[in-house]
């Protein structure tokens, strides 16, 4: 289903959910939960957004049913730890590549995805200052290295 323009801000989280459907369905579930919450704040009044959000809710309910034996789904505190570990693992991979001077598309994507997953942590409550800083750094690094590679410069 096409994403209404008013909900464009959640497109990257929805794409991350799609990319993790098979690799890590728990990540896919919480990315969609984040998208749902954010989408409702952005616009749940116009018919096209309501229709989209109702579909997203159907998807979330069916995912929860299918994964009813996963502690990470039935207990959000376990889900919180799962998403945080996954995001930080991705951040550390990209950071190690960066510090080793290995600049490539995959590490840029890892920095960016880790920042999106750190966004997702906000569904569990207020984010820690450390995670806010990691998110800021990861997003900045992803943009900076992407721009360097595009213009043929070597990142510092």
């Amino acid at each position: 289903m096409a994403l209404p323009a008013q909900l464009r801000a959640i497109q990257h989280h929805l794409r991350t959910a799609q990319e993790h459907e098979d690799r890590d369905p728990v990540v896919a579930y919480y990315c969609r939960l984040y998208a749902m919450q954010s989408g409702m704040k952005l616009d749940s009044k116009t018919p096209e957004c309501r229709k989209f959000l109702i579909k997203l809710m159907d998807q979330l309910e069916s995912m929860k049913k299918e994964m009813s034996d996963h502690d990470s789904i039935t207990q959000e505190v376990v889900g919180n730890a799962h998403i945080e570990n996954y995001a930080l693992k991705m951040f550390i991979y990209a950071d190690n590549e960066d510090r080793g001077g290995r600049f490539h598309k995959n590490m840029i994507k890892s920095f960016y995805t880790s920042s999106l997953l750190l966004d997702v942590l906000s569904v569990f409550g207020e984010m820690s200052e450390e995670n806010i800083q990691h998110r800021k750094y990861a997003r900045w690094k992803a943009t900076y290295i992407h721009n360097c590679l595009k213009s043929g410069e070597t990142p510092l």
Binding site: K45, L53, E61
Partner: peptide
């Protein structure tokens, strides 16, 4: 008509909020 549309929209919005709360109930 616009008042009816707005009532429908707000009812659907409430339903979505309720479904979200139920989804997250442990």
């Amino acid at each position: 008509t616009s008042s009816l549309a707005s009532t429908v929209a707000s009812t659907e919005q409430d339903e979505l909020s309720q479904r979200l709360s139920r989804l997250r109930d442990q």
